[in-house]
Amino acid sequence: MQKLGIIDVGGTTIKFATWDGQAIQDHHAITTPKTKADFFELLTAEVNTMKQQRAIEGVAISAPGAVNKLTGVIEGASALPYIHNFPIQAELAAAFGLPVSIENDANCAALAELASGAGRDVDSLVFLVIGTGVGGSVIVNHQVWHGAHLFGGEFGFMLMDGEHILSELGTAPQAVNRYLAVRPEVDNIDGKQLFDLAAQGDTDAQASIQTMYDALGLAIYNLQYSFDPEKVVIGGAISNNPALIPGIEQAIEKIRARVEIASVKPTIVPCDYHDEANLRGAVVDFEQTYAAV
């Protein structure tokens, strides 16, 4: 395996590391620049250091947005408008003097799980990232399915009840918002506190969380019976909550009890990687991108 520089572009910080063929090294983060010029200057300086210290042979990048692998352009939108809608892959390759790969951050995280994490024993999976919204990735035969319009894995847009999309129903922040709407006397709380209240018997907290479980259960049920993945991997900080997957599974069982023909029970597992997921997945993407070169 090649020695690579790895970059995970985020709206607040950019993570840098190197890959020695087996493990991540030199992992550190720097505040994300405000302009394209400063962005290019920072990345070029960091890559030049990697070239001198580690003799890297390419640069693997994870980034937000809809990455068009055919054109090397990041389409769509993100918190960093200056990375979009120009040939960023080619321009970075010219600046670095090295081959460059770029893939969407959720797709990178899914590739990391597929290669050596929770999905290492399968060929196909659905990866759901549950945060302030719901995103993710679809993997078919070890390859990311980007979709005809680069919307593969945008599960948060799925309409769940004729009115609300999954990102409005299936996340902890939205569950908190529902709770505060019916309990205006409660000071602002976070997702962990909401789960604690539910465990203590607060019926409003329990109802709000159940709405989240039901939405995620319906989404995963539908994905299982439309795409039929071998595994469904859950990412995002909430994946650390031991109550999450049992709650989703109970919601799915209620659906399966109503649909007698539904013989398959989805296999749902938490992700293995968190902080390093995008970095590790960018390496996998680089190797796939240049496999035939």
Score class of each variant (00 low, 15 high):
252 I>F: 11
122 V>N: 06
81 P>K: 09
52 Q>D: 12
183 R>N: 14
125 L>I: 02
277 A>I: 02
202 D>C: 08
136 G>N: 03
187 D>H: 07
286 F>T: 15
170 G>H: 04
40 F>I: 14
276 E>A: 15
218 L>Q: 14
106 A>W: 00
221 Y>W: 15
283 V>H: 02
58 G>Q: 08
168 E>M: 11
114 L>N: 01
286 F>L: 13
246 P>H: 14
168 E>F: 02
76 G>D: 00
53 Q>T: 13
257 A>N: 13
207 A>H: 07
226 S>W: 07
199 A>T: 00
219 A>P: 09
206 Q>A: 15
59 V>G: 09
7 I>T: 07
195 F>D: 08
3 K>H: 13
29 A>L: 05
152 G>R: 12
71 T>A: 11
174 Q>M: 07
128 L>N: 08
160 M>A: 07
181 A>R: 09
113 E>N: 06
57 E>T: 10
182 V>S: 07
230 E>G: 10
58 G>E: 10
243 A>E: 15
154 E>F: 13
177 N>R: 15
62 S>Q: 00
39 F>V: 11
125 L>T: 00
137 S>D: 01
249 E>H: 02
150 L>G: 01
250 Q>M: 12
43 L>V: 12
46 E>K: 01
182 V>W: 07
278 N>T: 11
22 Q>V: 03
39 F>Y: 11
275 D>A: 09
203 T>V: 15
211 T>F: 00
5 G>A: 15
198 A>N: 04
181 A>C: 00
236 G>I: 03
214 D>S: 12
52 Q>Y: 06
97 G>T: 03
78 S>G: 08
44 T>S: 14
164 H>I: 03
194 L>K: 10
71 T>N: 02
195 F>K: 08
271 C>Q: 05
137 S>R: 01
109 A>S: 11
231 K>E: 04
203 T>F: 00
241 N>M: 03
98 L>V: 02
31 T>N: 13
194 L>G: 09
210 Q>T: 13
213 Y>D: 01
291 A>E: 15
92 L>R: 10
110 A>Q: 12
55 A>C: 03
225 Y>T: 13
28 H>G: 00
9 V>E: 05
104 N>L: 09
102 I>Y: 08
200 Q>D: 11
223 L>E: 14
140 V>G: 05
97 G>E: 01
218 L>M: 11
98 L>R: 02
66 A>G: 00
257 A>D: 10
163 E>K: 14
70 L>H: 07
140 V>R: 13
